[in-house]
Write a protein that binds this DNA or RNA. Structure first.
Lengths: 204, 204
DNA sequence: TTTAATTTTCAGTATTTATTGAAAATAAGA
DNA sequence: TCTTATTTTCAATAAATACTGAAAATTAAA
């Protein structure tokens, strides 16, 4: 990590501006992505800020960098700590709290997968199981359609649940390995699309 | 699909009630999940409704089932059609439009992955590339931290992008096969956690 | 054509979610 | 202890998002 040794020259004003611009754009973009996936925009922006900061930042620095209120910065920082994506660090001599993000991208990914599984998938599965069970011996077209569909869905979500559990605790190398094999193994999109239909197994 | 042949007896009132309850719960839950992942709650509820309906439904049926306005039903149905998760069917003799969901769970999954990639991941990658490029020859600690972090992140998102592309067009069997191998291949969570640390490759 | 059914649009409104800012609580010196 | 820096809370407010309902547009039959 932070190998501050080599090229640590002062940046020109122009360079400062370039960095600032790129960073602002990244922060904005990360916020937009988070938003699209159901995550508070500000929380994602703070995450982006900390993720690309060489040093841990204080609440006040986050406030002024993103031009947000203390309450807002505070609660979103807490939320990030709650997810495990950010940890607070205390510096000797300093009274206030600083925050730093988990920088390792794979680790970050694992945390997010784990948390989303825990918060959303697993609870949803309970409901699915319950709905499936409570309709298992009903008769009639509508009831059968409902029950069968729910059974398939439940099985699929169970698979996702297990997959998320495994991937989020797995070793980076092992996971990458499988991913790579998978990426190489399947047909190209054009082929898979069945542009020259060979018939046979289901292709989507 | 809909093999209406065998047990198609009339349901008792009690059974009707059970089915209704289970279905309402499923619809609510699916709505909540969608919501957590950044999808309009009503859109997800309509999807849930159509997903578990033996027959295609009209806008009016959706309206009355979910107790929502025409405008709301209309725009969310359109949105679902836009995603490719729902298609409209016309019945001979009938003047109005009916809607049915894609029922195959794997197919459904592929559509969602494909759309999210197209709508969010690919555009985000552009920005990431741009931010990475525009800071590639800046000096200074902050600039280096930013650039390096962004490079790693970009690589990871690229991998996700490719993965989503591949999985969303892949054959169900092939994908399942890999998934299963993966699920069997990795260590158990306890082991992977390194509870009896053997040292060596990174474990999260 | 005219009529009637159906779909689409969209201004106005409601609901939900996010944010502010200042007061209260807490923690760390002095 | 008292003082001051810092964190936390939360009522009030703002902003974003979703929804309604009725009017306009479209479509298909008569």
């Amino acid at each position: 990590m932070s190998k501050a040794a080599p090229s640590n020259e002062k940046m020109t004003a122009q360079q400062q501006r370039l960095l600032q611009e790129a960073r602002d754009e990244f922060v904005a973009q990360w916020g937009a992505i988070g938003n699209a996936w159901g995550i508070n925009r500000t929380m994602a922006q703070i995450h982006a800020l900390l993720l690309t900061s060489a040093e841990p930042l204080s609440t006040d620095e986050v406030m002024s960098d993103l031009k947000i209120s203390r309450g807002n910065a505070h609660s979103n920082l807490r939320e990030l700590v709650g997810w495990g994506l950010v940890r607070s660090v205390i510096r000797k001599g300093e009274r206030k709290e600083f925050f730093e993000a988990e920088k390792d991208v794979w680790q970050m990914f694992c945390i997010i997968v784990r948390e989303r599984k825990r918060r959303e998938i697993t609870p949803a599965l309970q409901v699915l199981h319950q709905c499936t069970a409570s309709t298992s011996d009903l008769k009639g077209k509508e009831a059968l359609a409902f029950h069968n569909q729910l059974k398939e869905l439940t099985q699929f979500v169970e698979l996702c649940d297990r997959f998320m559990e495994t991937v989020s605790w797995s070793q980076k190398n092992a996971a990458l390995n499988f991913t790579m094999k998978f990426l190489k193994g399947t047909k190209s999109p054009e082929e898979a699309l069945g542009i020259q239909h060979k018939g046979g197994s289901e292709t989507y």
